[in-house]
């Protein structure tokens, strides 16, 4: 049976050089709807100037990442009842640590470039066990890799908050997943703004909607980097 809740969406607004503010929208919602459903209704029936990113509606494209009541969420799979209560507030902000294009939409260009630079494979063979970085590329059938490049981990990372130069969890996890630590990738990840910048807050793993476990991957990447250095020191290839 369908329930009806009265909730208030507080939406972050930013247009060009204008000062930022929040717009409030009183909404009647089904608590089992998703946060993105409400945002879409605000756009459809209340304010056509609202800018936000979304596409697939089933957690595959990674486009609808936002900060909901202070926590990074993929809004297409976040039920309203999981973030508020009847009569409550849903404050929606754009992801942190990315330049805001307008309202809830952020510019992820640099992030995508970095993912490509480290050799992250968005499509892998079905036999590829990417939960723990094991390779099996014998199969011809393909599937999408676990990381959907939503950027939530970078938004939640306290280190990315203080320096945009830090590659960030998804990019480092992408390097670990690719398994190809060629000199170009090594220059990026074995550096001040690479794997060694992580300070183990584990927020990336907490907010990841796709069980990539970026924190584990960063630590595993460090282990590989140390092993390489030790081998290099002893002249082992």
């Amino acid at each position: 049976m369908t329930q009806t809740w009265h909730v208030t969406y507080e939406i972050f607004r930013k247009k060009g050089d204008q000062s930022t503010h929040y717009d409030r929208f009183e909404m009647k919602v089904d608590p089992d709807e998703y946060v993105l459903d409400g945002i879409e209704r605000i756009w459809a029936f209340h304010d056509r100037s609202l800018v936000f990113s979304h596409a697939c509606h089933h957690s595959t494209c990674g486009a609808c990442g936002m900060v909901v009541n202070g926590v990074e969420k993929l809004t297409c799979i976040t039920p309203i009842r999981s973030v508020t209560k009847d009569g409550g507030v849903i404050r929606v902000q754009p992801m942190r640590n990315f330049p805001v294009i307008s309202d809830l939409s952020v510019d992820m260009t640099v992030f995508y470039q970095r993912m490509e630079s480290v050799g992250h494979q968005p499509v892998v063979s079905v036999g590829f066990e990417d939960s723990k970085g094991k390779l099996d590329s014998e199969d011809d059938l393909l599937r999408l890799s676990d990381c959907i490049e939503c950027g939530l981990c970078i938004s939640a990372c306290p280190i990315a908050l203080t320096t945009p130069a830090y590659l960030g969890p998804a990019v480092l996890a992408g390097a670990q997943q690719s398994g190809d630590l060629n000199p170009c990738v090594l220059e990026l990840v074995d550096s001040e703004n690479g794997a060694w910048r992580c300070h183990s807050a584990y927020e990336c793993t907490e907010v990841c909607p796709s069980h990539v476990d970026p924190a584990w991957r960063i630590m595993d990447l460090r282990k590989k980097l140390v092993a390489r250095r030790i081998k290099k020191f002893f002249g082992v290839k």
């Binding site: 930013k14 942190r96 330049p99 805001v100 952020v106 306290p158 908050l161 203080t162 320096t163 945009p164």
Partner: peptide, 17 residues
């Protein structure tokens, strides 16, 4: 586009909310 959070936001490291 500009960064909504500046690197100088070190103080936010201490926000546990």
């Amino acid at each position: 586009a500009e960064h909504p959070q500046k690197p100088a936001n070190l103080i936010k490291w201490f926000d546990p909310r």
